[in-house]
């Protein structure tokens, strides 16, 4: 092979440059996304619970909100009975979800920004007032 020294050196340099971002972050923990549930309303609850289990909400809240929307707007059903704890909730993003999760910036936005998703809930629904930070 002609110029093998140069080619191999070049390949090595290319390989190091291309994998540099991965090599630099090797072994470092990724910034963990922890949506905060530290609000006065949630802290005041004797037993902390959401409408469904934490795992369900984490995975399915978008589907649940879609179904809630259709039930209220199109079918006029406004009471939701929880599968996991049997409690009844008024179906409302503004008046149920955000009454407890009054920290939109540290709860909703945290994951949504990380995942670069922009749900357009807040174009119409009024988010709770928070300190600008």
């Amino acid at each position: 092979m002609y110029n093998s020294g140069k080619i191999i050196a070049g390949l090595a340099v290319f390989f190091i440059l291309a994998t540099l971002p991965f090599l630099l972050n090797l072994g470092k923990a990724n910034a963990k996304i922890e949506p905060s549930i530290d609000t006065p309303e949630i802290n005041a609850m004797p037993k902390k619970h959401c409408v469904e289990s934490k795992e369900f909400m984490r995975a399915e809240h978008m589907q649940l909100l879609n179904d809630w929307r259709d039930e209220v707007v199109r079918n006029g059903n406004r009471i939701y009975t929880s599968n996991s704890n049997g409690n009844q909730f008024a179906i409302s993003l503004q008046n149920t979800c955000m009454k407890c999760h009054s920290n939109k910036k540290d709860f909703c936005d945290k994951c949504h920004n990380y995942m670069a998703v922009k749900p357009y809930c807040w174009g119409c629904h009024i988010a709770p007032k928070e300190d600008k930070s």
Binding site: N75, G76, R78, I91
Partner: peptide, 16 residues
């Protein structure tokens, strides 16, 4: 495919 609410889970407000 999942995701649809069961009919038994939603109901109108009895005050309606």
């Amino acid at each position: 495919s999942r995701g649809n609410l069961e009919a038994s889970q939603v109901s109108p407000d009895p005050k309606a």
